[in-house]
């Protein structure tokens, strides 16, 4: 099933996140990622990613668009948007050899080492969802102790 992205503009009122998330739960769809930000206008922008076939995706678009506090549902074409995710990674206590490997890996992945205390690293990484998945997988549970991820945020490339 295809991964879908919706960008939902809604009033910033009590219960709005619950309204959105339960409409997916009820149709047995898992939200892979959900992020919220407040727009300059004071409205909330919620970005959702989930998996669904074409028919269900369109149905969910209509369900969301119908909800009273929702103003607009935009179906995101990742090709025409910039999509990013941020991850913060904490390692276990590493030996010298592991340390060397991780530093190289982080560098080649365009990440930053934020802290290094007694051979425990804290790393910042940003990029596409897949990019972060790959790095996390490559480092693996041998190395990583904790992973905190932002979920996906995006902005459309349209200029108008």
């Amino acid at each position: 099933m295809k991964t879908r992205m919706f960008s939902v503009l809604c009033q910033n009122v009590p219960g709005v996140m619950m309204r959105i998330s339960r409409s997916f739960t009820r149709r047995q769809i898992n939200l892979d990622s959900i992020t919220v930000g407040i727009e300059p206008s004071g409205l909330a922008r919620v970005i959702l990613t989930f998996k669904a076939d074409d028919r269900m995706a369109e149905f969910m678009r209509r369900i969301l668009a119908r909800a009273e506090p929702i103003i607009d549902v935009e179906v995101i074409d990742p090709e025409r948007s910039i999509v990013r995710e941020i991850a913060l990674l904490k390692t276990k206590k590493l030996d010298e050899e592991q340390l060397w490997k991780v530093v190289q890996k982080v560098e080649s992945a365009g990440g930053k080492i934020l802290e290094d205390k007694g051979n425990v690293l804290i790393i910042e990484l940003s990029g596409s969802h897949e990019h972060i998945e790959n790095v996390v997988r490559e480092l693996g549970p041998e190395i990583l102790k904790e992973v905190a991820r932002s979920g996906q945020v995006l902005i459309s490339r349209e200029t108008i």
């Binding site: 009590p14 219960g15 619950m18 309204r19 339960r22 009820r26 909800a67 009273e68 506090p69």
Partner: peptide, 14 residues
């Protein structure tokens, strides 16, 4: 009640 009524109303308020 906001949570209880939420899925069974067209809309609800507190």
């Amino acid at each position: 009640m906001l949570s209880i009524m939420l899925p069974i109303t067209k809309h609800n308020f507190i």
